[in-house]
Simulated assay, not measured.
Amino acid sequence: MKQIKMGCTTLSIPAMALGIMRMNQKSVPEAQVAIQAAYDAGINFIDSADIYGGGKSEEIFGQAFSQMQIKREEMFILSKTGIVPGKRYDFSKEHILHSVDEILERMQLDYLDSLVLHRPDALMDPEEVAEAFDQLQAAGKVRFFGVSNFDVIQFKLLQSCLSQRLMFNQLQFSLKHTGMIDFGMHMNMLDESSIDRDSQFLDYARLHKVTVQAWSPFQYGMFKGTFIDNDGFPKLNQELQKLADKYEVGKNAIAAAWILCHPANIQILVGSMNPQHIRDSAKGAKIRLTRQEWYDLYLAAGNYLP
């Protein structure tokens, strides 16, 4: 598995992580198969959130992982907090501290390798968040911190009050969600693709050594479904299949390789619980697409160049 540097540190993490959002739909033995498939492929990084399956995903993970032969220190485990289902976002100190205790209990862990704030809270008090982070780190409950879906100003505002460096920002990115790179190639134009929707965070991340984690790498829209083998995207699937045949892998591997080809050292969050899909996606880390192949996929996905 390709390794990348985590944020501004010298620590290495795999270029792919296993997202367990759908683990609540699996039995404990099925969850173990998915975790083992990822681990065997070099994916020893887990991405979770307290709202996944209403907490059930973390419970299943905790039961499954506690019975496996993988050592805790061999796995990097990240979880997110801040979304209160159906009610609000909440970055209050009280909520953050309480959520971490519940996460650790569900996952049967003594500590998290990273805690990520899940989507921006309009009522965020950066100094209050800083107090929570300091307390969690001092107690040995969380090693590193990050955010999800923050723009540059939100990121800088929070960072200005923290004693820790933010390591991650989780952002949607795939062949069918390319806004982070579209506007740069359509600069100073008046078309839809010229709109900067994320305050140039990808370039900011490269300048300031923040690891961007790409969620929904095989999805289109907001959880509408996968574009892989989807009849609605014939041209894209034709191009994916052509390259899959060339590199002797599946389409997931090519879609993953497309993301990893970007020089920002993006980490992919693979949300599948299908061991075959996990193994195939992992193969994408070994593929280096040519520049022409990368652009051919970009165009086949329905994008255009000026």
Rank of each mutant, 00 (worst) to 15 (best):
M1F: 13
Q3G: 07
Q3A: 10
G7M: 01
M16F: 08
A17H: 03
L18K: 00
M23F: 03
S27P: 12
V28L: 08
Q32V: 06
A34R: 00
Q36L: 13
Y39T: 09
D40P: 05
D40H: 13
A41P: 00
G42Y: 04
G42W: 05
I43D: 01
D50C: 13
I51R: 05
G54E: 10
I60Y: 03
I70P: 05
F76E: 00
L78P: 00
I83H: 10
I83T: 08
K87N: 12
K93I: 08
K93L: 06
H98P: 04
V100Y: 01
E102M: 14
E102F: 06
R106L: 00
R106K: 14
H118W: 09
H118I: 00
P120E: 01
P120L: 08
P120W: 07
M124Q: 13
D125C: 08
E128N: 07
V129H: 00
V129C: 04
V129T: 00
A130R: 05
D134M: 12
L136T: 01
S148G: 14
F150N: 00
F155P: 01
L157R: 07
L162T: 06
Q164E: 12
L171W: 01
S174D: 02
H177Q: 15
T178E: 04
M180I: 11
S193M: 08
S194L: 11
D196W: 05
D196Y: 05
R197K: 13
D198S: 11
Q200N: 14
D203K: 11
Y204T: 02
H208D: 05
V210R: 02
T211M: 10
S216G: 15
P217S: 06
Q219R: 09
Q219A: 12
D231Q: 10
K235Q: 12
Q238F: 13
L240R: 01
L240F: 03
L240I: 07
L243W: 02
A244G: 08
V249C: 11
G250H: 02
G250V: 04
N252M: 11
A255D: 06
A255L: 10
W258R: 04
C261Q: 13
C261L: 07
H262N: 13
I266H: 00
I266D: 00
I266S: 03
I268D: 04
G271L: 03
G271M: 00
P275G: 09
Q276N: 15
I278Y: 01
S281W: 05
K283C: 10
L289V: 10
E293H: 06
E293L: 05
D296Y: 07
L297F: 06
L299H: 05
A300T: 08
G302Y: 08
